[in-house]
Write a protein that binds this DNA or RNA. Structure first.
Lengths: 185, 185
DNA sequence: AAACGTATGGACCAGATAGTCCGAATCAGG
DNA sequence: CCTGATTCGGACTATCTGGTCCATACGTTT
């Protein structure tokens, strides 16, 4: 979507109308109550698309859970690399922009991150037999997301593929720190 | 500064004039060539302030380097907590907002992150005797910054102090992973 | 085919915003 | 006290924004 790339504020309703080949303002306001409503909708849409495609790999039943997590991290890295580092995270951009714009946005964003985290949590829960007892799935999932978000943001700024790959690799190492001795990843 | 809190786009020149008690538009345009120029200036100012106060602890000569790093992480956590999670990172907000607005902004932001990273690198370099051989100071410094940025962004969205503390604690654990056996942090 | 309700096009409005411009005030030196 | 230059104040312009409104096209039912 346009908004994901260019930001919410910087995308005018006229832009949206042109891009979506709507016939006019009233056509737009037929679908959306206001621009804010559009923002919420886009956010939800964005997450659903992400949950469908991006997060799908986390649920892949034929692959070992930890391996799945690594693949997921890799997939984010290659997505960002392919797209020339223009996107950052699907939500990170919108998050820092919209969070203080509107209480409703903030709540929705919280929800989005929570749902993402819970996907990782259930993966980690599944991987429990391989993990050490100290491993806290909730904390670990949040850590993973935060690092990924930060890495994507920074790679968007610096456009440095090496940096992104390095952080991703270190993140995997951090996760593997929680794997029991004698268990292959 | 105003812009750091409210964002660049959402702060009008009139806002700046009022807030800085300037006499009028021409007064503003006497100091700055354009609004973009102001943005660059603010960014530099912001980093200098951060380097002076926030990063100062990293250079504190009387404290063990790794201990300093932990204190620095703690200081970011408490700053964000004190301010009610409204700020996020000093740069993260501006970064994702301004990076694709203007090539000049992007370059300046890259510089800012690099300078921050190099401060952490020299700290890690100093701590070399305590670290394992595999520890790569450049990569580690980037990882630390990315995780902090992501954590600050997410805590700004969720306003969850617990989450921020958890990520910070895990980050310290990750750093301590690179400390040689038998060396107290 | 008439009548009616709904979708549509796009002109229009009010408010905001970056940036310009010119007249007035201030202050220097003679 | 006058003159000239520099700074200051804020009115003004052009443009863009989200949002409204109404007349018309269309389709459906009778």
């Amino acid at each position: 979507m346009l908004i994901a790339e260019r930001g919410f504020k910087r995308t005018s309703i006229d832009d949206v109308i042109e891009h979506a080949s709507l016939s006019g303002k009233s056509h737009f306001y037929h679908y959306f109550k206001s621009k804010d409503q559009l923002g919420l909708e886009v956010l939800s849409r964005q997450f659903e698309k992400f949950a469908e495609r991006g997060l799908a790999i986390l649920r892949e039943p034929m692959i070992e859970p930890i391996e799945r997590l690594n693949l997921f991290i890799d997939s984010l890295v290659s997505l960002q690399t392919e797209r020339g580092f223009r996107i950052g995270s699907p939500f990170g951009n919108l998050a820092s922009e919209m969070a203080d714009l509107h209480e409703g946005f903030r709540e929705r964003l919280t929800l989005v991150f929570e749902r993402w985290a819970s996907q990782i949590q259930s993966l980690l829960w599944e991987a429990r037999p391989y993990l050490t007892e100290q491993a806290d799935t909730v904390r670990l999932s949040r850590f993973i997301i935060a690092t990924l978000e930060g890495a994507l943001m920074m790679s968007k700024v610096s456009r440095d593929a090496e940096m992104l790959r390095g952080i991703a690799a270190d993140l995997k190492r951090f996760v593997s720190m929680h794997i029991r001795e004698g268990v292959a990843a």
